[in-house]
Every structure is written in C-alpha cells, then in structure tokens.
Amino acid sequence: MRGSASATARLSETDRIRVERHLALLPLRGSVAAMQTEAMVMRATGGPEVLERATIELPEPGPREVRIRVHAVALNHIDLWGRRGLPNYRYEFPHRLGADVAGVVEALGPGALNAKVGDRVVVNPGLSCGACERCLLGEDTFCKSYRLMGENAQGGYSRHIVVPDANVLPMPKRLSFTEAASLPLCFLTAWQMVVRKGQVRPGQTVLVQAAGSGVSSAAIQISKMLGARVITTTSTDEKAARARSLGADEVINYTSQDFVAECKKLTNKKGVDVVIEHVGGDVFAKSILAAAWGGRVVTCGATTGFTPTIDLRHIFFRQVEVLGSTMGPKGDLFGILRLVDEGKLQPVVDRVMPLWDAADAHRLLEARQVFGKIVLEVD
C-alpha cells in the first residue's frame, strides 16, 4: 500500500484525476454481489410448459448500468422462437425471455449517466459495444457483439433487470407501463423497414402483410403518417376493422382472396411500391409478385417458413429490390417515442396478462389469437 501511495503521489494532477475516476467505477470489495428476485425462466427449450416461476440471483448494476423494477414486458415472436430453440441460440440456463420492458429505475451503477433513481423508463432491447465503428456510425445492429434481450442475452421476464444506461429512455408521460412496453422492438423494426429500407414517400402504395402482428400494426401507422396509401392483409373481419382504425385504406382477407390479384386490381395492374413482410414461406414469394416494377420487398422474419421457392426472373427482370432488415439503430427510438408522446403513433395492446401466466400468453400468440401485442404485467 505504501508503494501504491508513493506512486500516486508522483502522478501529475491530470493523471491523478483519471486514476480516481477509474477507481470510482470499480465495484467496492465486500459490497453485495447480487440480489434475489422472481422471474419466469426456462431451463430447457420446448413448448410453453418449459416456462416456470423461479427465484433468481441478479447481479448488482456495474459501471454504466442501471437496475430497473420491471412493471411490464411485452411478447414478441422472438420469444416463441427463443423458447423453442434454434441451432444458433446458445443459452445460459436458467434463461429469461422478453425484449420489451418498461419500469422504474431502482439503482444506479458507478458512472451511470442517462437516468436517475425513480425515472419511469422504456428499455431499448438491442445491446452492442457502443465503441466500434458501426456503433459510432449509428449502425449498432451491425456491431459484432450485437445481441437482443431475451434472445441471446437475458431478458425481461423478471421483477428486476440490469441493463446498460445507454439502453434506457424516458417513458412517454401519456402512456401506462403496459402501453410503453409494447413499443420498442416492433416500432424500431417497423421504422427501419418503412423509413430506412422501404424509403416510403407520400403518394406511394404500401402492402403490409399480416396486419395483426406487432410490427405490422406499427408499419401501418408509420406508412400512413408518411402519406402513403396502405393495403394490408388479415384473416378475420374483426382484425380488418382494427387495421382500418390504424389507418389502413384497404384490407384483404387472405383466407378468401388472392392478395396478389387484389393488389394488382387496387393499383390498376401496377403493383405496390413497397411490401413490408415478415411471414416468409409462400407469402414472401407471392409478395415479390405483388410488387411493382422497381418496387421494394422488405423482410424482417419468416414465421411460416425459411425456404420459399422464388422465381428469380421476377426480381432481376422487373428490378424488384429484396431487402433484409433486423431491428433498427438505438437512436431511432428517441424520435419514435416523441411521435408517440405527440399522439402521431400509438401502441397497440391486445390484452394484458400477469407475468406468471406467460405460458398461456405464448399459447395465444402461437394460435394467432392476437391483434397487436400481449403485454405481461409484473406485480
């Protein structure tokens, strides 16, 4: 210790300040390493029955981290895929699903800057290093360490979570926790698809597949806000009415109508300028046929199949652009939340259920008995 003190004494004033700042970010010896909280976890992949209520240990927030008391966490299709398991998923069991979280900041780690205790916040589910070239360009979804909460990192099916302070945003004042939790993943994904990739402009026609999904209910609103004519597809009259209430101009019932033929009819045989698609399988292949010459098909998922059969002539001869999309830059969520706070975009919550009924919520989502989001409330 005496040697360390002598070395510190020899430092310049600037270096001494740097050392003290560094030491302030280190956890103190003897401090509490973890707290206990309750969560819905999975100890293996499988059906909804693998979800179980359990007590877990949660590390104290480290440097530039915050602990959040979770009040609501929304379901997404990635929860279903994560629960079933995919070859590229590597879990640390017990694993917690859940990407979309809203709650209250309860504790700050050393050096946390973006929040204070008591703040009502929304959590951005994308995790990246924040220091590489792609992150600094605002392209964090291309970061080599990019992960998604609940997918390849622990998620929000819990009373408490610890996240980087860079992932915490102020919650719109006009929203409840359950409404706020329904926003991040689906609106970030839809924003990138419609605005960044689809480049939707006033006067264009946009086809949004599967109106009842979280991403599609957001994409309908964003496309309409940008001045586009919106066509969407769904399976029931009830869902069609809800799609129209969000701004859809035309709704096609895909159980009784051929959406390609209907799109051609509604556009005087031209086809649509942009397709927002996440269904996959035959729907993806037919979406290419529904697109106009020079149109864009933007896809972010494949809920019904990963290997569609495609006639490439419809891509190169008609110059249709096929664009892949995953999530969106973290910075875009600030603007999205401002638009929500101004009432220009709205959360779409189908129902609210207790976190401890997560297995039943998964069954409802799998059965496609939902329009918008199922949100789990955490008592």
Rank of each mutant, 00 (worst) to 15 (best):
Y146H: 11
V73F: 05
R67S: 12
L58W: 11
I78Q: 08
V66M: 02
G103Q: 11
V121M: 01
I56G: 11
R53C: 08
G126E: 11
V66C: 01
P125Y: 02
D79F: 06
S128D: 12
E92G: 12
Y89C: 00
R147T: 13
Y89S: 07
R64N: 10
L75Q: 00
L136Q: 15
H95R: 14
R69Y: 11
A131T: 14
G126Q: 09
G111C: 06
R83T: 07
G109D: 06
R147Y: 04
P61G: 09
G85W: 09
R69G: 09
C135V: 10
A74K: 06
L148S: 05
R69A: 13
A74Y: 01
R147P: 02
R96L: 14
R83F: 09
E60P: 00
R147F: 02
P87A: 01
R96W: 14
V70R: 08
R90Y: 07
A99W: 13
E60I: 11
L75W: 02
A54Y: 15
P59A: 12
N124R: 11
E139A: 14
L86D: 01
I56V: 15
W81I: 06
Y89I: 13
A72S: 00
V73R: 07
R64C: 04
G62P: 05
I68E: 04
R147Q: 13
P63S: 13
I68Y: 04
P87V: 03
T55A: 14
D140K: 10
L86W: 10
P63D: 07
V121F: 03
L86H: 08
R147C: 04
N76S: 09
V117C: 00
D100E: 08
L97Q: 09
V104W: 08
C143D: 12
